[in-house]
Design a binder for these strands. Structure first.
Lengths: 126, 126
DNA sequence: CGGTATCCAATGGGATACTG
DNA sequence: CAGTATCCCATTGGATACCG
């Protein structure tokens, strides 16, 4: 794909633009972290909460709903007492997670380079 | 890389977590769009503004600064009258753009699947 | 031309309390 | 257990005016 095609997809067609429309919902504070947890294996609500221990209950519910709405996450309710709810990645979710994982691995490997760039920038600016 | 390693990198080490620290700055409303424009070729301030025509001057300046601070973007001032400022991707920026582009292409190719998932979700919820 | 500065509205997100 | 509901604060981002 050519870069100018991607760029032009944005012009004149703002709400439909894939970059804006799709990536926007992956850009939240918690989305990628929840996807990492669910890509490993299906998890229950309380399990996810323990793993991402500083997320509030409100944001966990809300972010899972958004990911479910976009078709990345499946929500399975097991009616029992107490109720169980299991979250898992859909095929679409797994498909999307492949390129996302590449970006996550880049972040992991180049974390220090970014931090050093920041320190240099801040040192000059003072 | 194993998923549980990525996940565990988050636990107990919150501010240093690469996922949070690096991806957070790529998650803004304009970051990926500006990176797409600059990955094509270097551009002047006013050029970028024309291409991403609905960005405000304030957000263009601010987002470019953040990308520059993290080491993705280089800012070259040509002192002339009128002044010229050219923005371009650094080697680190080009390196990061490879996995980002894969995600952008995924978004482009699966845009409709995501929209359909949304419609189904909204239809059930009503 | 390429910015800053200021003000304001909208959104994101945390804390707490309550519920089937 | 897995949520909702409410309130409130912090951050994001848009509009406008001004500047070297």
């Amino acid at each position: 794909m050519k870069l100018d095609e991607i760029r032009r997809a944005h012009g004149g067609n703002l709400d439909n633009c894939p970059v804006r429309d799709v990536l926007a919902n992956l850009s939240g504070k918690w989305s990628s972290l929840l996807l990492i947890v669910l890509a490993e294996r299906p998890r229950r609500f309380s399990e996810i909460r323990r793993l991402v221990f500083d997320i509030s209950q409100r944001m966990l519910t809300q972010t899972l709903r958004e990911l479910q709405r976009d078709g990345y996450v499946h929500r399975l309710v097991v009616p029992s007492t107490p109720p169980k709810v299991e979250y898992s990645l859909t095929p679409l979710g797994h498909s999307m997670f492949q390129p996302l994982l590449a970006l996550i691995e880049w972040a992991d490997q180049n974390h220090m380079a970014v931090r050093e760039a920041r320190d240099r920038f801040d040192a000059i600016a003072e």
